[in-house]
């Protein structure tokens, strides 16, 4: 043991603005590193990235042009870029929500279950700041998942399939560069769609100290929403389901882009954010941390 060193300064009472902001950034980076550094999360991303490869190989090796199958599949042989969209279509109902449910469900409950929540709170990280950082990291993780799938899709598409001008769904043809730019919009839209689920997961995560429970509950809610969305008898509630507008990203691939559906989709997610983020805050703010 040594006596305290000179680098330590006497604590000042009130946080100064610049120092506080840089600390907020450090905490956010630490959180993102924690999420992206977990082997399980990396494995999830790796599994997601297998899909564009598998689909690409399957289409490449099949003798006939696929007629039936997921949307955009038949366009893949015309232009490899469609591998991105067909992969997202395949992954959006289950695997992407699962990845988001895992990180969002774990966010608070995971820290509570191993006891690190109490350490953070006495640092002190205020409960509000903790939720903001946790939520932001979950959304970042969702984006990384979607972006990884897209990146692998683009690369596999370039390797296995033609990559000239892209014929959009509306029949118009745009340059590959323009189509790439539209793909970025698709990434943004899909991430925003998952942000609603991440907010639900964050709230569920504040209810329990068992992370696996929060993950499962969040994933189940994503499935229930989609099942409800497929039952025509209850079509009245369909517009309010958070999964209802998920698949609308195809609208980006029309010319002109049809913004209306996309806007509705974003508004739906905003509504879920507006409900579940305050709910998570209200829950955590008053919670006794006994773990």
């Amino acid at each position: 043991m040594s006596t305290s060193s000179a680098v330590l300064t006497r604590p000042a009472g009130r946080p100064s603005g610049a120092v506080a902001r840089s600390a907020d950034l450090r905490l956010f980076r630490s959180e993102v590193r924690l999420v992206l550094g977990r082997r399980r999360n990396l494995a999830l991303i790796a599994v997601l990235c297998c899909f564009p490869v598998l689909i690409g190989l399957a289409v490449h090796h099949s003798p006939t042009t696929p007629g039936d199958g997921p949307p955009f599949l038949s366009q893949v042989t015309d232009n490899g870029l469609f591998l991105v969209f067909t992969s997202l279509t395949v992954l959006l109902p289950f695997f992407l929500p699962l990845a988001v449910a895992v990180t969002a469900g774990e966010s608070v409950a995971g820290e509570a279950s191993i006891g690190t929540l109490r350490n953070l709170l006495v640092v002190p990280v205020s409960r509000t700041r903790l939720l903001v950082v946790k939520y932001a990291a979950s959304v970042v993780f969702a984006f990384v998942c979607v972006a990884a799938v897209a990146l692998v899709g683009v690369v596999v598409g370039l390797v296995l399939f033609p990559h000239g001008d892209v014929t959009l769904l509306s029949g118009t043809t745009v340059s590959y560069g323009e189509a790439l730019w539209r793909s970025l919009l698709v990434l943004g839209y899909v991430t925003a769609m998952l942000a609603g689920l991440a907010a639900i997961g964050l709230f569920v995560s504040t209810l329990t100290e068992v992370p696996i429970g929060a993950m499962a509950a969040t994933a189940v809610l994503a499935i229930i929403s989609q099942i409800a969305d497929s039952i025509p008898q209850i079509s009245a509630i369909h517009p309010y389901l958070f999964s209802h507008p998920w698949m609308r990203f195809g609208d980006v691939l029309r010319s002109p882009m049809s913004w209306h559906g996309l806007e509705q989709g974003l508004l739906t997610q905003l509504a879920y954010l507006a409900v579940f983020l305050p709910a998570a805050w209200a829950r955590l703010r008053t919670k006794d941390i006994t773990a």
Binding site: S5, V7, L8, T9, P11, A12, G13, R14, P15, S16, V19, A20, S22, A23, D24, L25, R26, L27, R29, S30, L34, N119, L120, V123, P124, V125
Partner: peptide, 17 residues
């Protein structure tokens, strides 16, 4: 990680602390 949570200390000395 815990040091990053402290809003009253400058980040550049984190490693030293």
């Amino acid at each position: 990680r815990l040091d990053a949570g402290d809003r009253t200390v400058p980040g550049r000395a984190a490693r030293a602390r």
